[in-house]
Structure formats: C-alpha cells, structure tokens
Design a binder for these strands. Sequence first.
DNA 1: AGGCGCTTGTGAAGGCGTGCACAAATCGCG
DNA 2: CGCGATTTGTGCACGCCTTCACAAGCGCCT
Lengths: 252, 252
Amino acid sequence: MSQQRHGNTPGNADGGRAGSVTAFPDLPEATIARLPEYLRALHNLGEAGADTVSSEGLAAAAGVNSAKLRKDLSHLGSYGTRGVGYDVALLIDQIEYVLGLDQRRAVCLVGLGNLGHALAGYDGFASRGFKIVALFDADPSKVGEEIQGLIVRHIEELGRVAVEENIAIGVIATPAGAAQAVADVLVDAGVTSILNFAPCVLSVPSGVDVRKVDLAIELQILSFHEHRKASLTALPGGRSATAAGNQEAVGS
Amino acid sequence: MSQQRHGNTPGNADGGRAGSVTAFPDLPEATIARLPEYLRALHNLGEAGADTVSSEGLAAAAGVNSAKLRKDLSHLGSYGTRGVGYDVALLIDQIEYVLGLDQRRAVCLVGLGNLGHALAGYDGFASRGFKIVALFDADPSKVGEEIQGLIVRHIEELGRVAVEENIAIGVIATPAGAAQAVADVLVDAGVTSILNFAPCVLSVPSGVDVRKVDLAIELQILSFHEHRKASLTALPGGRSATAAGNQEAVGS
DNA sequence: AGGCGCTTGTGAAGGCGTGCACAAATCGCG
DNA sequence: CGCGATTTGTGCACGCCTTCACAAGCGCCT
Ligand SMILES: NC(=O)c1ccc[n+]([C@@H]2O[C@H](COP(=O)([O-])OP(=O)(O)OC[C@H]3O[C@@H](n4cnc5c(N)ncnc54)[C@H](O)[C@@H]3O)[C@@H](O)[C@H]2O)c1
Ligand SMILES: NC(=O)c1ccc[n+]([C@@H]2O[C@H](COP(=O)([O-])OP(=O)(O)OC[C@H]3O[C@@H](n4cnc5c(N)ncnc54)[C@H](O)[C@@H]3O)[C@@H](O)[C@H]2O)c1
C-alpha cells in the first residue's frame, strides 16, 4: 500500500524538486497557502475604495505579520512602491494570475448528501474563480435531481463529462468508505486536483494533488487546547477581567 | 494557519520544568495536528480486529512518514513495545486523553443556513467526542425550527445557554459580515475555542483559539498547483523528467 | 539459554519558515 | 532642487520540523 501524498518532498533521494522548471519562481508552500488570504483582503479593500495599501495595512487585514507579507509578495516580484505601498488592483491581478484564477476552473462535486447539497448551493465558489459544472452521485434516487440549475448525474458518467467539460478539480463529499473509489474514478477521468471532505487518507498517483478538509480534526485540535487551558486554569486566580468585552479592533 | 498563535514560551530554554504547570509535556503544534489523524487510523485498525500495529503500519494508515509518527508518539511517552509495535487500544486511550476527548465536549453552532444545516445533521461529531448542544441564528424565521432534535434559538439566548450547557466550542457558519459580531458574543459567553467557516479574519482576545476552514482557499491552492502543472506540460518533452531547461522567470 | 530478527525511541543534520532590523527607493513639500 | 518622511525589499539569525540512521530493547525460536 503506497499512499502517496500530494506535493513534492515524497521520499527525497528521488528526482528531487520537480517544480523547479515552471514558469514561476518556486514559491514556498507556506506562501502559496497565504496568497488566497491576501487576495480576499485585497478584494475587501478594493471594494472599500482603497487604491493602495501598505504592507502593514494589508497584513492586518489578512491577519499576518507585515514582514512575512512583504517577503511573500517579494517572491512574486516587485509590485510595491516604496514610500507608498501596493497598488490594490495591480496586486489583485498579479496574485490571481499566479494562482491561475484568471481562467475560471471547472469543478465537479461527487456525493450529494447533506454536505454535498450545501456545497452545491454555495455561491462562494463563483465569486472566487471557480464554477461547479457537474454533480455526481451513485444513488439512483439522487440522480436526476436538480440542484442550483444542475442535474445530478450518475457517477458512471463522470469519465465522459469530465473530458467534455474539461474538469480539473474534483470535490469528494461521499462517505469515507466510498472516497477512495471515487478518487480512482476521478483520476482515471484525468482530474489532477482533489478536495476531499471524507475522513480518510486517499491514495493517488504522483502528479495528483489532494487536499483534505476534516471537521472533526479541527475540533479535536481545539479540544486539545481546551484541555490544556483547563489544566492551567486549575490554578487560583480564576478568570481575569474578560467580562468587559472585546478590546481588540481590526485596524484600518 | 490561523492568525492567532497560541504559543507562549516567549523566551525558550525550557530546560525541564519552565513555568508551565500543565499536565502535558509541551507537544509541538505540528504533532497535535496529526494526533487526530492517528486516532482515526487507530479506530479503523481496531475495528478491523488488530490488537497491535507497527509504526510502519500506522504511518501508512495515517498517510505520514513512520519516523515522524514514532517521534510524535514518543512525545506522549513510551507506549510501544520494541519488536512488537503499539497496543491499539492503549494508544487510542492515550491519544484521546491527551486530546481531552474522554470528556465529551459541548459544541454550539451559530448560523443555520445552507452550511449550518449540513453541519447540524452531521453524525461525525458524536462519534468523535463532540456533542452539538445548541443551535443559534439571528433570523426570526429560522428560530424555532427543529433540526435533528434541537430547536434553533435566537442568538440573544447564547450567553445564557452557553453557561447552562457549559459550551466550550463555538462553530460559526454565518456570512462573513456577521462573523466578527458572533465571535464577540461567543467570547463574552465564555467560549474559548471557535471554529470559523466564514471567509474572514476574526479578532479575539488572547486565550481564545480560532481555527478557520475556508473552502475557497483550499480550491485556490489546488488551482495554483493546476496552473503550475499546466505550465510544466506546456514545455516540450512533456515527460516528468527534469531534463535540461533552466528555470526562467516570467518577464515583468 | 542464547541468538536472531524485528521494532521502537532518539541523536544529529539539514531544510524551511519566521521575524527583526535596516539599507534602498520613492514621494511630497518647501 | 533637495530634504525628510515613509515604506518596500531583503540579509541574517534563530527555532521548529522533518528525515535519516542506528543503538537499545523485546519476543520468539532453536
Ligand atoms: N455533513 C457534514 O457536515 C460533514 C462535515 C464534515 C465532513 N463530512 C463528510 O462528508 C462526507 C459526506 O457527508 P454527508 O453528511 O453529506 O453524507 P451523506 O450520507 O448525507 O451523503 C453521502 C452521499 O454520497 C453518495 N455516495 C455514496 N457512495 C457514493 C459513490 N461511490 N459514488 C458517488 N456518490 C456516492 C450517497 O448517495 C450520498 O448522497 C462524509 O464523508 C462525511 O464524513 C460531512
Ligand atoms: N454553503 C457552503 O457550502 C459553504 C462553504 C464554505 C463556506 N461557507 C461559508 O459559511 C458561511 C455560511 O454559509 P451558508 O451558505 O450557510 O450561508 P447562508 O446565508 O445560507 O446562512 C447563513 C445563516 O446565518 C444566519 N445569520 C446571519 N447573521 C447572523 C447573526 N448575526 N447571528 C446569527 N446568525 C446569523 C442567517 O440567518 C442564515 O441562516 C458563509 O460565511 C459562507 O461563506 C459556506
């Protein structure tokens, strides 16, 4: 059983960083993960009427350290003006280009149960560069149902439709037991990026990227911190003055 | 990562005791994030009838490197037997204890729209140590609705109910514009852990942990890799080999 | 009892990411 | 036209995390 993890740094001794031949300077993975956050903050600022923004201001809006933000952006090139800041519109274009959002990507969703319905009805995709073009399920009673203007198709059609619609990203919202099988179907159909909501590890060939979202893991991490905090507050002193309310305000 | 860092240990040099009186050795953040994955894998193995498991086997099931797994577990203490492996049941108990899952934690959910309904109906919470004890919304037309045996209450009741039910974790599934206000209400009610699904940065006092789940960010990260992969296959040769060809930056 | 194979636990090395601190660059104004 | 205020871009040091490699420990078989 070789479960391949996405991304590079698989083993190590192998061919090494395959990503170095791209048209981009290799961006650190940590930077890539923050770019979408900067982009969202920039859109907010733009809608608020800002033409330019300083690294300090943008960092605050994105919830990061300003030095980190500057270093992240410097990896994309020099799009700031010293003494002034960054041009909001220009930076938006640049980040969208790097993230490949200038071309609206086609997404398919597999598994239209509880979660799948919510995702299908989510308007946050379209506004962020994605378009759900197909829905699939294995349950005959679900096939044919219309959701948000799309008809649920049987998963057997996935191979054909994926090619027709040029689907690059697949979202899995099936039970864990079916997730690997669905992933295999997606990979066979040529899908090279998968977002997995099922709580399980997927095994995919190298070259296919998998990202996982697991609610229970998030809650358990919070639980750990609760546990730790509880063991701390066992000390005297009790709660400090928190009844007053929030003190922090989002700057600018 | 989220904007809020919990890490204290301002100085460093914890030559042993340090000021923290907690019952735990300080676990690295990265380790904590992986423990839930190990736990899930262990439950699967246990249900499959395994009594013990080697680091190699568990690592494969959890999708990580075996050395990393051993180091992670070594932080909890020595619960393995050399030449044999780890006792599945014992390790489950141990991890659950560390994560604070032995006490079922009360969770409340705010915002019962599209996503909130799916979350409320999700049975993966109960099976992983959590119990949704209350639902809140601000929309009068939603208040009173029964979902999975719970009645949706008005958010103004949150303060009272949170204390009554001893709620430690709040989940925000409202639009981004309302998220900060909801977070403030949760904090005032004594909730010290928040899971935020709204695409925005939350500002909370120190001592409160926030974790964020943002679908669009996940998709955008995948999009970047798609973009990168596409620019690779655009090159002549096509093969994955990193033949000749040096990197070249996009002209600016 | 002793040897042998297997697995854990860990020391050490290297890579990655973060944040400080500051020089370089640009604008606005007198 | 030059000067000061401001902000970017980055060299550098430090700490965290990952990974390798191996000695120590354990059980089983002869
Ligand atoms: N509901 C939530 O809030 C939530 C939250 C976090 C994670 N999840 C995870 O998301 C997944 C889906 O959750 P859910 O609550 O929507 O479950 P669900 O049972 O309501 O829906 C699952 C859907 O997948 C379909 N399906 C099953 N096998 C399939 C296959 N082989 N091919 C195609 N479709 C198939 C089913 O017909 C059903 O429509 C689960 O893995 C769950 O653990 C759900
Ligand atoms: N639907 C999805 O699949 C999805 C996916 C990812 C992220 N999100 C995010 O999750 C959030 C909710 O998404 P949704 O699709 O469920 O939206 P929605 O509009 O369907 O539901 C929002 C709910 O929050 C309630 N609400 C609004 N203001 C409130 C307040 N101040 N206090 C309490 N309740 C309040 C509304 O009455 C409504 O019921 C959004 O921020 C969205 O961006 C949704």
